[in-house]
Structure formats: structure tokens, C-alpha cells
Nucleic acid binder design. Structure first.
Length: 345
DNA sequence: GGTCCACCGGAAAGCTCGGTAC
DNA sequence: GTACCGAGCTTTCCGGTGGACC
């Protein structure tokens, strides 16, 4: 049934990006100075999750590389690479200048090495840049005349609010490309494209794709996840085509899978905290700390737990209800541990 | 209004780990 | 082998905030 698994992944970059013509043109024009040896302005891609920001950035840079093969491009997801050291290291890695770099190498040494890689331009995509904890990395990269930045985030106001004055003043003038949510028809055609490339002909109907698109509510990441989950389930059940029941079962499953990936990235103590909150539905801080201490042999201090909680709120795994005294915590959406169909992913 | 208490989060110090230099 | 360095994580300390109670 599945003929090309890669096409059904959210991070797959298609040969042609549909329904984003204006945004592609805007980004391409912004990066055009590279073709003449000039440095383009920093570009921001703003918009909600699943509207194609990352896909479009990677697609456009792919197009640029066809015109300018010597250009070097780096994609960095700031969820994973959120420190100055890691960001600089990833850029160095792409230039091949990362030999002998280790965790005790001073960050200034990384920067100096990057200064010496100025023989060819580098375009750095920083995805989820609002998750960057050390925004000095942006200051560093902006200082490098041969480095151009494409910064991806959800909301402009929140992103700039976390910059210090030095970074804010340098990036304020950048170009903005804003993305709206896909309409249902647009999402249906995106899913049709993926299905035609990734699945055997006729295994999923137009009506089923519309059901998936309706549920995804403009989020292509969710829509593609549901399509993948449905195809896998149909394969496992040995049926020749996707049924409506399979689609219905795949919808909650795909959402759960996205959250589960995040939960699995938690360290042991964070996971225990998450479990305590999930078990209680909603819990006050004092009860949460007490229950956590009972479940682990070597508990962390409450200050460290507060750091963990802040992190999990950032990850959209939990939410804090209320402020200061009287606050409580609860998990967001469904508990990923309860879904037995997680094997789909 | 004053006090107590629970809670948050910033700042700084301490600790651990992986690596280098001698 | 060991002293040292730097990054990342954890802990300690403490000020700020706001609800509960008198």
C-alpha cells in the first residue's frame, strides 16, 4: 500500500510546494542578493504550526542551491539545539570546520573559527527560534558578514520580547513573511499530492482526505500524520484500501503520536513529573512535589522541578492554571500513555 | 492593613563530565 | 596520572507576588 514512506513524513520536502506561491516568491526575492555576492537581510517566517514554514524554507534554499551550488545551507531546529554552543557548532559542522571541537571548547573559539569560514556564503535556517535559550547566538551569526539568517517562529511579538536590546536592534529591520493557516481545500490538495506519491493508486478516497483535512483544521503536519497513520493501520490489517473506520481511528492516533515523541524526549525525572500530573488530571504544586518525591529514589530539589515544569509548559505537554498561589498543573489534551495504538508510528 | 504562607523565577555558586596539556 | 578548563545541569539563596487569615 505504501510505496514511498518518506513522502508521508512531515519533514519531507516535495518537488513542488503548493498554495505558497506568494511566500516562495517573497522569500526568493529576499535571498536574491546572494546571487550577486551580496548579503540578504535577515528573513523571518511567522505563522502557526503546520502551515509550511519549514517546508517552504528548505524548498526555497534547495532552489537557491541549484542556481548557486557553492552556497552552504544549515538547518537547525532550536528545540534540540537551544544553546549558543550547539548552534555555533552545527554551523561549523556544515562547513567542515568542526574538527577537534569538543564540549570544553570555548564558545569564542567556535565563533573565531566561523569567522575564518568566509570563503563561501552560508544560509542558516533557525527553526523554532523562539526556543533558543541563548539569543547571543543570533548576535554572533548576525556579526558574520558571510552568514545569512532565515528565522522561523510562531509569533513576532513573543519572539522579539525575549531578545535583548542588542539582538533586537539588529534584527528589527529584517524582512517578514507571514503564513496563514491552510484552508480545507488547500489541505485536501496537499494530502492528494502526498497520497499520489506515497501510496498506491486508489487506496484512499477524496472524501476520506477531506475528512482528514477537516479534522486537521489547517495544520498540514497533523493532516499528513493522520494520512500516514491510516495507511500504516490499513497495511497492518491487510486490507486493500483505507476504510472510513481506519481514518476515524487514525485521527486521535496521529495527534497522540506527535505528543508522544515529545514525552519520550523527557529525561527520567521529567517523565515522573509528567506521569504524576497525568495521573492526577490536575494537581497543586505542593502535592505534585510530594508525590514526585515518593516515586523516585533520589529526588531533585523543588527549584529544579520548577525548571522542568517550565520546560514542559514550553513543550505544550502541560499547562499551569492560575498564577502564584493557587496555581495547579494539568496535562494538555490526551494522555499519550493511554493510547494503545501508538504502535502505528 | 498587616502578617503569614505558597509559589515563582532570577542570579550565582557548586558539581559533574569530557576533553586537553603537561 | 593529574591539574585544569569550559559547558551544562543542579542547588542554594532570595526577592517579588498574591491569596488567606486575623
Amino acid at each position: 500500500m505504501i510505496v514511498d514512506e518518506r513522502v508521508l513524513r512531515e519533514d519531507f520536502v516535495p518537488g513542488e510546494v503548493v498554495h505558497r506561491h506568494d511566500e516562495i516568491t517573497h522569500l526568493s526575492e529576499t535571498l536574491e542578493p546572494l546571487l550577486y555576492g551580496d548579503r540578504p537581510e535577515t528573513t523571518f517566517l511567522f505563522g502557526p504550526t503546520g502551515v509550511g514554514k519549514t517546508c517552504l524554507a528548505r524548498y526555497t534554499l534547495g532552489q537557491l542551491r541549484e542556481q548557486l551550488p557553492e552556497i552552504r545551507t544549515v538547518y537547525i531546529n532550536c528545540w534540540q539545539e537551544y544553546t549558543r554552543f550547539r548552534v555555533l557548532y552545527r554551523v561549523l559542522e556544515a562547513t567542515g570546520a568542526d574538527i577537534d571541537i569538543h564540549r570544553s571548547t570555548p564558545k569564542d573559539e567556535l565563533f573565531q573559527r566561523l569567522v575564518r569560514t568566509d570563503d563561501q556564503p552560508i544560509v542558516v535556517i533557525l527553526d523554532e527560534v523562539d526556543q533558543l535559550e541563548e539569543t547571543e547566538a543570533l548576535y554572533d551569526l548576525h556579526r558574520l558578514r558571510h552568514v545569512s539568517l532565515v528565522l522561523i517562529a510562531n509569533r513576532e511579538e513573543e519572539l522579539f520580547a525575549q531578545f535583548d536590546d542588542r539582538v533586537r536592534s539588529r534584527l528589527r529591520a529584517g524582512t517578514r513573511v507571514k503564513f496563514d493557516r491552510y484552508g480545507t481545500d488547500e489541505l485536501v490538495s496537499i494530502l492528494e499530492e502526498r497520497a499520489s506519491q506515497g501510496l498506491e493508486p486508489g487506496v484512499v478516497t477524496d472524501a476520506q482526505l477531506r475528512t482528514i483535512a477537516d479534522d486537521a483544521a489547517g495544520d498540514a503536519r497533523v493532516g499528513i500524520g493522520v494520512l500516514r497513520s491510516a495507511a500504516r493501520r490499513a497495511t497492518r490489517e491487510g486490507v486493500e484500501s483505507v476504510t472510513d473506520d481506519i481514518v476515524a481511528a487514525a485521527i486521535p492516533n496521529a495527534r497522540t503520536a506527535i505528543r508522544r515523541e515529545t514525552v519520550e524526549g523527557l529525561i527520567e525525572h521529567q517523565r515522573v513529573l509528567y506521569d504524576v500530573i497525568a495521573d492526577a488530571d490536575e494537581i497543586e504544586p505542593s502535592d505534585l512535589y510530594e508525590e514526585y518525591e515518593q516515586r523516585v529514589d533520589d529526588p531533585k530539589t523543588t527549584r529544579t522541578l520548577r525548571n522542568y515544569l517550565t520546560k514542559m509548559i514550553h513543550y505544550d505537554l502541560i499547562e499551569a492554571v492560575g498564577q502564584k498561589r493557587g496555581r495547579s498543573y494539568r496535562v494538555l489534551e490526551s494522555d499519550v500513555r493511554e493510547n494503545g495504538d501508538a504502535a502505528d508510528e
